[in-house]
Simulated assay, not measured.
Amino acid sequence: MTGGSEERWESALDAVVVYARGALCRRLARGTVSPGGRVVVTGLPRSLDPGSLRARVLDTPGVRVTEARVKVDAAPVAPGAAEGLGREVERLRDAREAVEARRDRQLGLVKEIEGLHPVAPGRKREDPHRRSPVEAWLELADFVDERLTGLHARLAELEEELREAEHALTVAAERLARASTDAPAAHVRTEVCAVLTLDGVEDAATHVRVELEYGVPGAVWVPTYRLTHHQGDGSGRLLLRASVAQRTDEDWTGVRIAFSTADLRRRTDLPRLRSVRLGRRQAAPAPSGWREPPAGLADLFAGYDAAGPRPATAFGPGGAVAGAAAADDDW
């Protein structure tokens, strides 16, 4: 597969599981791939742990990922990239200020309507008592309630619009800061990608959906508990809220987020299972003195048997040397 073509796919962050330290992110990418080709998935953060990258194919039986590795691409930055980001930041700042001004005007209208209340006309001591216009007071109260309902609904919309404008301004300002500090001398932009090798692709243009999973540091969540109890009630209401802080170089807006109290970087090994015997306990058998002969014992004297016949002994039956006896006879 080294000689196949290479396709570039964009990815989108789908879900995040935030642990006590770190987070596990899940990205989805889709596209067409030819047989023997490789896929380069873009959009990964620079803070990811390369050893935690996992990839698998979804909804395409027979196709599987045989290799997944992290690659960093470098490309020259256009000369006007920083200027364009600066103009975008200015535009978003003006839009934020316009929404904030509309919100302030809406707050003024709410305060103005809330200040409406019936006031009885002044009466001198010699004037007779007059009947209170209760119907007029009730009509004024209904008008105030109806008007405040509409004003508060519009105020909630403006508050949400202001939060979105502030978020967009924050993201644009962060991009401008990165573009201004990422290797300004060489004008090089780096991008982290995942290179995937797919096996089992038979058609010339097979549509494949891929899931990427990787871990990132720089994320943490803190639980907050709130217990509500009314005096005289026999029950209460416990609310659990999670405050999330992250600097993973990714935007988590609109992403499904789950929480875990485990430590993502804690090593987990399988437990060692011990054997368990059921029944009455029996005494251990007495050790035996017999042992199996060592391996290769039969070959210990193989060299001696192959040396030939046994040599004649130099001593006679009486214990005298035969050669010495023959010498005495000559004398």
Rank of each mutant, 00 (worst) to 15 (best):
Pro45Val: 01
Val171Gly: 02
Ala165Leu: 06
His229Lys: 14
Arg131Glu: 15
Glu292Phe: 15
Ala141His: 04
Gly37Gln: 03
Gly323His: 15
Ser47Leu: 12
Thr190Gln: 06
Ala156Glu: 09
Arg38Ala: 00
Pro118Asn: 05
Val72Ile: 13
Leu155Met: 05
Arg247Asp: 15
Pro317Cys: 02
Ala120Met: 14
His129Tyr: 13
Arg21Met: 13
Glu213Trp: 02
Leu24Asp: 05
Arg123Ala: 12
Ala168Asp: 13
Ala307Ser: 15
Cys193Leu: 07
Val65Asn: 09
Ala20Lys: 11
Glu135Val: 08
Ser243Tyr: 07
Asp203Glu: 10
Arg54Asn: 12
Tyr214Cys: 03
Arg291Glu: 11
Gly308Ser: 02
Thr224Trp: 12
Ala307Tyr: 04
Tyr304Ser: 12
Arg125Phe: 14
Thr149Cys: 08
Asp104Cys: 07
Val222Ala: 14
Leu138Ile: 06
Glu126Cys: 04
Glu160Asn: 09
Ala320Ile: 03
Glu83Gln: 15
Trp252Asn: 04
Val220Cys: 05
Ala262Lys: 02
Asp199Arg: 11
Val72Asp: 10
Val201His: 00
Val255Leu: 04
Leu44Ser: 04
Val195Trp: 04
Val201Gln: 00
Arg21Cys: 09
Glu112Tyr: 14
Ser260Tyr: 00
Arg8Thr: 10
Glu202Tyr: 08
Thr32Ser: 07
Met1Ser: 03
Pro133Tyr: 07
Pro317Phe: 07
Asp104Lys: 13
Glu211Thr: 07
Leu85Asp: 04
Gly236Glu: 01
Ala101Thr: 11
Val134Phe: 11
Ala141Trp: 07
Asp251Gly: 06
Val210Ser: 03
His229Trp: 15
Ala120Gln: 13
Val276Arg: 12
Phe315Gly: 01
Gly80Pro: 03
Ala302Pro: 03
Arg56His: 15
Lys71Thr: 06
Val119Ser: 08
Ala283Arg: 13
Arg8Trp: 09
Arg247Lys: 11
Pro128Asn: 04
Arg277Leu: 12
Thr206Tyr: 02
Val210Asn: 03
Arg265Phe: 13
Ser5Thr: 03
Val192Phe: 04
Leu297Glu: 11
Pro311Lys: 10
Ser52Phe: 02
Ala177Cys: 06
Gly232Ala: 05
Thr197Ala: 01
Leu238Ser: 09
Leu198His: 01
Thr170Asn: 11
Val244Gly: 09
Thr228Val: 15
Ala172Tyr: 00
Ser52Gln: 05
Ala258Arg: 00
Leu162His: 07
Gly31Lys: 00
Pro223Gln: 02
Gly318Arg: 06
Thr197Asn: 00
Pro128Arg: 13
Ala322Pro: 09
Leu227Lys: 06
Val171Met: 12
Val144Phe: 06
Ala314Arg: 11
Ala74Ser: 08
Lys71Val: 13
Asp233His: 05
